[in-house]
Design a protein around this nucleic acid. Structure first.
Length: 568
DNA sequence: GCCGTTTTCGGCCCGACTGTTTTCAGTCG
């Protein structure tokens, strides 16, 4: 198994943590962290970049030294610097930085003075009262550490849809106080959200924090100052609310939307021009030269407006400088849904009800794609029922005005890559989605071969939910995404962006990588009820995070153009 | 350790809150 990008990034993060505890130059520490983020955000594996002869030092934040270290890790699996650091700072010191109140300085002190190297060591010294008298450790920090050690809260991220429900309720609660925008990774529409960052304009900043603390769902108050308040809601999600004056609203929104890497890059541009950018505005000396809107700040910095979904420091700033940002696909571009179930299988609504719900959204078409027979518990269709469904669709289509139900199927990809229905059945359809619903534990090679085998059938238009993940519940199955993308590009098979909030599959990075290979996408809801057509927006979010334009997405086409495209 | 329309050296984003402080370091985002 080759070393994955995520593993290299994790090694760099760990090294950064330990270097910081050692008291090394903070900019050296930051360099490792920055490189880790770059590596995480790469659409391809480092191994394949190296194989293609790519010079890693071309990547942002990676110079000659780190390029050499990355190459060594990928080739040997070892990172000598990290090995050395672990000898000097053994145990779990790096991981312990996740405890609240423990940063590099206090960890160093614990290690030097009390020989603390593990979580258990820390429990012991606190129990023995040996923290008393150590500089920087008062009763409050001791108490926080104790409670954190008692219930080691795994870092939890929330599905975007879950965070949205919390965010909407909270924003409505605060809205009487002023303008409220939920910023952070929520506004960047990441598939999961760690915490909610709200920006509020208010004449009386402190009143906003007071109001938040009084919110009925607050379980814990972490910090409560004049302009910033942090609480944890009962659901476990952390909320930071920041009150800012109207004239700073844009700068604050920019700052709290992030990403952190994007902000740092913007501030560096400001510094190069002799200015300063903070959450209150863009300043030349003491004079504010921009800040009431984000557009104004970008413009002053010589940049086109960058949509929040692109703010990840993955090359968007250079594009904005060149005024060459892609025109991202929007919800309004979507003209139909290409993955829809009915009560013929495991959906809850009739075909006609689904069609009417789709039409009510302004769509021109939908592809009805019920399950095939292999998915027995969903009453999957066999050739005879599929033929019967086809006649039913004809009858309904005859009644519909300005809307067309395309005849489709979500055909199961069997273990060997063959399809669950004969070509003779599939050939009568307008649209075939092929998906994996079984044998998730095949080897990487076998799983990849299996899906490519299915794509090779020219009757298949789209691969449905290509990695099979269920966010927070099931990891994606092992798959060689680069090989899959290369094959899809060659075969000219489309890939699905499944908009179910627990799927969002493909994810943003894979979408971005596939786009570079010229692949087209279907953004589909996989709707099993009339309500779930609304999920399309989550799919559009991820498409935008992958830099897709309307042209990259087949269901932005008119029905006539779509039909033309589907012939291959 | 990275990086360059001030530069191959000398910078590197910026501010709020907390706790432990007698004026600020550490942590966090």
């Amino acid at each position: 198994m080759p070393v994955q990008n995520a593993e290299v990034a994790a090694m760099f993060d760990q090294a950064a943590e330990l270097l910081e505890i050692e008291g090394q130059n903070q900019f050296r520490v930051r360099a490792y962290r920055r490189a880790a983020r770059t590596i995480e955000g790469l659409p391809q594996s480092i191994k394949s970049l190296l194989a293609a002869g790519r010079d890693l030092s071309d990547l942002p934040g990676i110079g000659k030294d780190l390029a050499g270290k990355i190459t060594e890790i990928v080739e040997t699996g070892h990172f000598p610097l990290l090995d050395t650091l672990k000898k000097e700072l053994p145990g779990e010191l790096g991981d312990m930085a996740a405890l609240p109140g423990l940063g590099p300085k206090r960890l160093r002190l614990l290690h030097d003075r009390l020989k603390v190297n593990t979580f258990d060591d820390l429990r012991r010294v606190i129990g023995a009262g040996r923290l008393h008298g150590i500089k920087g450790f008062g009763p409050a920090i001791e108490q926080r550490l104790l409670s954190a050690l008692a219930k080691p809260v795994a870092e939890k991220r929330f599905k975007l849809s879950v965070a949205e429900a919390e965010a909407d309720a909270l924003a409505n609660f605060l809205r009487p106080s002023g303008r409220v925008v939920v910023a952070g990774s929520f506004r960047r529409r990441r598939d999961t959200v760690g915490d909610l960052d709200l920006v509020v304009t208010a004449e009386h900043a402190a009143a906003v924090g007071d109001k938040l603390v009084a919110y009925e769902n607050v379980a814990e108050v972490r910090a409560h100052g004049g302009t910033r308040t942090t609480v944890v809601l009962r659901s476990g999600i952390q909320v930071d609310v920041r009150a800012v004056p109207e004239e700073s609203f844009g700068a604050a929104l920019l700052y709290f939307t992030g990403s952190k890497a994007h902000n740092i890059a913007l501030r560096a541009i400001a510094v190069r021009r002799g200015w300063k950018l903070n959450e209150y505005g863009l300043f030349s000396g003491r004079r504010r030269i921009a800040g009431s809107t984000e557009e104004e700040v970008y413009k002053k910095l010589g940049l086109a407006y960058i949509p929040p979904e692109m703010r990840e420091d993955r090359g968007e700033i250079a594009l904005a400088q060149a005024n060459a940002l892609p025109q991202l696909v929007t919800r309004a571009n979507i003209r139909g849904d290409l993955h829809v179930h009915s009560d013929w299988t495991d959906g809850t609504a009739s075909i006609e009800a689904m069609a009417k719900a789709a039409q009510a959204l302004g769509y021109q078409y939908m592809a009805l794609t019920d399950h095939s027979r292999r998915v027995a518990m969903a009453h999957g269709l066999d050739p005879a029922r599929l033929a019967k469904q086809s006649r039913e669709i004809d009858r309904i289509n005859a009644r519909l005005r300005n809307f067309t139900i395309l005849k489709g199927i979500e055909v199961d990809i069997l273990k060997d890559g063959s399809l669950d229905l004969p070509d003779s059945s599939l050939a009568k359809l307008d649209f075939v989605v092929a998906s994996v619903h079984s044998y998730f534990d095949l080897t990487r090679q076998a799983q990849t071969d299996r899906i490519i085998q299915a794509m090779n059938n020219p009757l298949v238009s789209v691969i449905g939910h290509p990695t099979g993940r269920l966010i927070g519940e099931r990891e994606p199955y092992e798959i060689d995404m680069e090989r899959l993308i290369a094959a899809a590009a060659t075969i000219r098979c489309c890939l699905e962006i499944n908009a179910q909030p627990e799927r969002l599959d493909l994810n943003d990075l894979h979408v971005h990588a596939a786009k570079q290979s010229g692949i087209k996408f279907a953004i589909s809801t996989d709707a099993h009820s009339t309500d779930s057509f609304e999920y399309i927006r989550f799919g559009v979010d991820q498409a935008r995070r992958g830099w897709l334009t309307a042209d990259d997405v087949i269901n932005t086409r008119s029905l006539a153009d779509l039909r033309k495209m589907l012939k291959r």
